[in-house]
């Protein structure tokens, strides 16, 4: 590979102090520049541990992690945290400021950004998540989805190379979830940034370029969403669901309908059916 990966995990093993089992066992993977990767797996599969290793909130017992060619260690940790922005699960417990603007300021202040530069970055990051006009709102007057969008804006203001969403939509209602996915999609269309979503929402997986499936602390499979959902049966065996469209097309296949590619959306499946229907 000519250019350095955004993220590389080499033979990472990790164990929690109180845990008696390894949370991660010899995990290796790469995430490329500008890639959107979804990491899925049932609870306890090690997917959230991966997120916390990426910016040094946890330190592995063995193996090396590089972010943009920079090794994650004691020495580089603050440099790494400038490159990796993270959005956590609970919208309330990551909102530090008393108002929206103060919350965005918090990260900028930590990184020593000058005030006039702050104002610029605040403006565009609020625009990016469509929260202009909410500058002086207090967190208890915002919905969960709005708080998470502020969290994304706070991350964007630091101008990171990588954004990690660690189950950031798990506590939101469907409207909130959609707004977050749309926001991330919109952000990606405007700037170069890699996105790692850690999730168990199948619809979020469809946004990703690539999926890493975790099972019992190991990388179980890597591939495009299409390739992964093709493994319908095997996914079921490790406790993961597949989307409705996948389930339906599998049933259709067993009825003898020939589908050329694994459909992911309603439209794709409908088109396949139509092709089959109009074939003579």
């Amino acid at each position: 590979m000519s250019q350095p990966n955004d993220i590389s995990f080499q033979n990472i093993s990790f164990q929690y102090p109180q845990g008696d089992e390894w949370a991660l066992k010899d995990v290796s993977f790469h995430i490329e520049e500008n890639e959107w990767v979804a990491i899925i797996g049932h609870n306890g599969s090690g997917k959230s541990t991966i997120a916390k290793l990426m910016n040094g909130l946890l330190t592995p017992q063995s193996g090396r992690i590089h972010i943009k060619g920079l090794e994650v260690n004691e020495e580089n940790i603050w440099e790494v945290r400038k490159k990796v922005g993270m959005v956590f699960q609970n919208p309330d417990n990551q909102f530090v400021g008393t108002t929206v603007i103060d919350d965005i300021a918090f990260g900028l202040e930590n990184h020593g950004v000058q005030r006039d530069e702050m104002l610029k970055r605040m403006k565009y990051s609020l625009e990016a998540v469509k929260m202009e006009g909410y500058e002086n709102h207090e967190p208890h007057n915002l919905s969960g989805g709005q708080k998470q969008r502020v969290a994304i804006a706070s991350v964007l203001a630091i101008e990171p190379d990588i954004i990690i969403l660690d189950e950031a939509t798990a506590m939101l209602d469907p409207i909130g979830r959609n707004s977050i996915m749309e926001t991330v999609d919109h952000v990606r269309s405007e700037r170069d940034v890699s996105v790692v979503t850690i999730t168990h929402d199948l619809n979020e997986v469809l946004f990703a370029d690539r999926v890493i499936v975790m099972n019992d602390g190991e990388v179980w499979k890597e591939g495009t969403p299409r390739e992964i959902f093709n493994l319908h049966k095997e996914l079921g065996e490790i406790g993961l669901d597949t989307p409705f469209v996948t389930q339906l097309s599998n049933s259709l296949k067993s009825e003898g309908i020939v589908l050329n590619q694994e459909p992911l959306t309603h439209k794709e499946l409908m088109d396949e059916l139509w092709t089959f229907y109009s074939r003579t």
Binding site: L57, R81, N93, Q94, F106, L108, N110, Q114
Partner: peptide, 27 residues
């Protein structure tokens, strides 16, 4: 306590390392 723990982690992830070298937005 759970909130405090999560908040501390979020603050650390957002680059908080004490008052040293910090700029100030509210002036």
């Amino acid at each position: 306590f759970k909130r405090a723990e999560e908040l501390a982690m979020a603050m650390e992830a957002r680059g908080y390392k004490g008052g040293e070298g910090r700029t100030k937005f509210r002036e």
